[in-house]
């Protein structure tokens, strides 16, 4: 398969997903309101430095928005009977997976950028390293959109089952990734668990980009996030191929 045909398939799949699943008023409104609720829930009324809270808050926004819709696309398509048609087009499983990842990444990137701009207007914070911040956003959205696609790989027809499964995996991550308790203060099991969460490395990069103190060198954060992206995509491909006809 030529790379241009592959790329075309990825982009058309991403465009389809954005049109059908992301470009909906409830999804967009939820995408913007969710960070606001998170902000009120975890910042207001707490004696916490904004510079300590903000990197974790932005990472959490990026994490939830990038991985929110991805897990549901395949179950929705199987339920609606459109998945077989999609596979009949000149695409491979990899094309479909990457198309889903690109759509999820774009959604996460746009929502996080809007939230960041709003924060810049209303809150007092300084971007110390824009390059680190942009790289973090790109890698973070790709990583968590890939996680979202991986969460869809059980390939059942019922989106509600995937929703529960997805929440079960995603929510615990925010408590072990240095969002509420800074990584430096984590000890014992908490510290060990934080190392296996990809969100930890994104939070760390955001700290580096927003003038805070990062725990790991930039190269480590970068390589670990790339490793997670590759790992999620590889496992998703295996599961998708195995479960392709399940639920049709």
């Amino acid at each position: 398969m030529s790379s241009s045909v592959f790329l075309r398939g990825v982009l058309v799949t991403a465009e389809k997903n954005i049109k059908i699943y992301y470009n909906k008023a409830p999804v967009l409104i939820f995408g913007l309101l969710f960070p606001l609720f998170m902000f009120f829930a975890f910042y207001m009324g707490r004696k916490i430095e904004l510079s300590v809270f903000l990197p974790g808050f932005l990472a959490m926004t990026l994490f939830f928005t990038s991985s929110s819709v991805g897990p549901l696309i395949t179950p929705w398509e199987k339920q609606a009977g459109t998945y077989e048609r999609l596979l009949s087009f000149p695409v491979s499983v990899n094309t479909v997976i990457l198309g889903d990842v690109v759509a999820g990444s774009l959604f996460g990137f746009i929502i996080t950028s809007v939230v960041m701009i709003v924060c810049a207007i209303f809150l007092d914070f300084v971007v110390t390293n824009i390059v680190v911040l942009v790289v973090a956003m790109i890698l973070g959205t790709l990583c968590f959109a890939s996680l979202g696609v991986l969460l869809a790989s059980p390939s059942v027809r019922s989106p509600s089952h995937i929703m529960m499964f997805s929440s079960l995996i995603r929510f615990p991550l925010i408590f072990i990734s240095g969002i509420f308790i800074p990584l430096q203060e984590l000890r014992g099991t908490g510290r060990i668990l934080s190392y296996i969460s990809p969100l930890t490395y994104l939070v760390d990069m955001f700290h580096a980009g927003l003038g805070g103190t990062s725990v790991f060198p930039f190269a480590v954060d970068l390589l670990v996030l790339i490793f997670f992206i590759c790992g999620f995509l590889f496992i998703a491909t295996l599961f998708y191929k195995r479960n392709m006809m399940k639920g049709l």
Partner: peptide, 20 residues
């Protein structure tokens, strides 16, 4: 597979179109 699929048009059994 992709080259072969380019040659064909398929109306699958459960091949609904996108209703949205």
């Amino acid at each position: 597979p992709i080259e072969a699929k380019m040659m064909m048009g398929v109306i699958p059994e459960t091949g609904n179109v996108y209703v949205d």
